[in-house]
């Protein structure tokens, strides 16, 4: 093999290596999903938030709860680490405003979920760097 050809092969190998590992510095996000029940019944609607306990690196991500399930896809997922969890569900108590009326007064729905699962949350989870993470919450 001639010298210039050897050199070009080496260069090619280096380029291939860089393109393989070049994107390794990007933080990897992991998808999350699970189910949420309150007193044994699926939570109809609401939201879940995952607050990073290391906010200088992490992201706040979350999802809507629909028929007792939530799902955060990989592209919006969480970094590995510990999170404090908030779960919230609105309770309209028959006062839901008419969506076809020009809005005026600001309506405030009541909170259906006990505060030990939102403002005074005691729920903590650890996202593991293993692909799909499943967290089910059975609230009382």
């Amino acid at each position: 093999m001639s010298a210039p050809l050897k050199l070009s092969m080496k260069a090619l190998a280096i380029v291939a290596l860089i393109s393989l590992f070049g994107c390794g510095s990007e933080k990897q996000r992991f998808p999350i999903e699970g189910e949420i029940t309150l007193n044994g019944q699926a939570v109809k609607e609401g939201s879940i938030q995952f607050h990073p306990l290391a906010p200088s690196e992490g992201f706040l991500e979350g999802a809507i709860i629909k028929a007792g399930r939530y799902k955060i896809p990989a592209e919006k997922g969480l970094l590995a680490g510990k999170y404090q969890v908030l779960i919230s569900s609105p309770d309209y108590k028959g006062k839901k405003p008419d969506p076809n009326e020009a809005p005026g007064a600001v309506y405030q729905a009541r909170e259906l979920i006990p505060e030990i699962y939102n403002t005074k949350s005691t729920l903590t989870v650890e996202v593991l760097p293993k692909g799909q993470n499943n967290f089910d919450f059975h609230l009382k």
Partner: peptide, 23 residues
């Protein structure tokens, strides 16, 4: 991916971004 929390008229169906009513 954290849902917005408008006080009313939340519609989380596609193509809207996620939302849930504020509490």
């Amino acid at each position: 991916s954290t849902p917005d929390t408008p006080p009313q008229n939340c519609d989380a169906n596609m193509p809207n971004p996620p939302c849930t009513t504020a509490t």
